[in-house]
């Protein structure tokens, strides 16, 4: 071996190794190694709750457990919805790491206990937090994790699950929507939001809460396309079958991260998310001291758009509100 040739070979070797590393990193950054796009799925929502005259219960009081039970009972009871053997997805709002901005753990506990009594096959509590917040950490610091795990229920940080599916919507802006597969697999979706103001959606209640089953890119895309219409479009396929609103402490004036907290001391429930969001929004605006709370609620774009898409009823004359008080 003479020095010249061998050195050339050495440099070649070195260059080859560097090129291999470079190619691999380039491929990695271009996403060559990630799985390809999947087919677009279809999902049907249960039509039976599409009532002509939806029931909304508004239970006031301080005993959260009793209030939740009463609110669900007033709209026909959990048995009407949850048959033994069904898979339940509970979607609380745990978008932030501040306790006042998320569904309170007590309300969530009461909801889980009620559903457990109906003996479903599986209960999953799942969430994907607002972008920039770590869902698992949110679960921990807000006390959600302790409550859910204490009850022996599976708690899922959707951001850690990589399985994403595309689902066809019957909305106006969104032809199809990417969601975490786990949400798509559930038979019954139960939305458990906290009643809050929202800087862009005006209010965030049961329908806006469903954005927590979207992966990060899709959430961003909603803002690019037009948030209000996208919320309505999403609810054409992921319409909560039951929604229970935590209005024990209400975030008013501004939101969804920080706002003025006002005691609301109420739980609202309904099987019609549009009717529920309308009544809950009215309740919120009334707490804010708005002179025309019902009209303001009727003008919340995504509630109006959802009604136009036939997701639910926003005609106050057709909504039956059951107001109760638990001492």
């Amino acid at each position: 071996m003479s020095g010249g040739i061998s050195r050339r070979r050495f440099v070649k070797l070195l260059g080859g190794a560097a090129a291999a590393i470079g190619l691999a990193s380039l491929g990695y950054s271009l996403g060559w190694f990630s799985a390809g796009e999947r087919a677009v799925l279809e999902r049907s929502i249960s039509g039976e709750s599409n009532l002509e005259r939806p029931l909304v219960s508004l239970v006031k009081g301080r005993d959260v457990n009793a209030m939740v039970r009463r609110a669900i009972k007033a709209i026909g009871g959990i048995e009407a919805l949850v048959s033994p053997g069904s898979r339940i997805l509970i979607k609380p709002n745990v978008g932030f790491n501040r306790p006042e901005a998320v569904t309170s753990p007590e309300v969530l506990r009461a909801v889980i206990e009620v559903i457990k009594d109906a003996d479903p096959k599986e209960i999953i509590v799942a969430e994907s937090a607002v972008r920039g917040y770590n869902t698992s950490n949110n679960f921990g610091v807000t006390g959600i994790a302790d409550v859910v795990r204490g009850l022996g229920i599976r708690l899922v940080d959707l951001d850690k699950s990589s399985e994403i599916v595309k689902v066809k919507t019957s909305g106006k802006l969104l032809g199809e929507v990417s969601v975490f597969k786990l949400a798509c697999d559930a038979d019954v979706i139960i939305s458990v939001p906290r009643l809050k103001r929202h800087s862009q959606a005006i209010v965030t209640i049961s329908m806006k809460n469903m954005m927590g089953i979207l992966p990060s890119d899709q959430k961003g895309m909603f803002h690019v396309l037009g948030l209000q219409q996208c919320i309505a479009d999403l609810n054409t396929v992921f319409r909560p079958d039951l929604a229970i609103v935590d209005a024990t402490e209400v975030m008013t004036v501004s939101g969804p991260g920080m706002g003025r907290m006002v005691p609301g001391e109420a739980i609202l429930a309904s099987r019609d998310p549009v009717a529920l969001d309308l009544i809950a929004a009215e309740y919120l605006f009334r707490l804010e001291g708005n002179e025309n709370p019902l009209e303001t609620a009727l003008n919340v774009p995504h509630i109006k758009l959802a009604a136009e898409l036939g997701i639910g009823i926003n005609d106050p004359s057709r909504i039956r509100v059951v107001e109760e008080r638990v001492s």
């Binding site: 790491n97 607002v130 972008r131 920039g132 917040y133 929202h198 800087s199 862009q200 961003g220 803002h223 690019v224 037009g226 948030l227 209000q228 969804p256 991260g257 920080m258």
Partner: peptide
Amino acid sequence: CIAVLGGECLVCAEVCPVPGAITP
């Protein structure tokens, strides 16, 4: 900025954890 271009977006203000750092 989407908000300036006429879209419905205040995501920055929504996620900002600092009181008063981003005000719509």
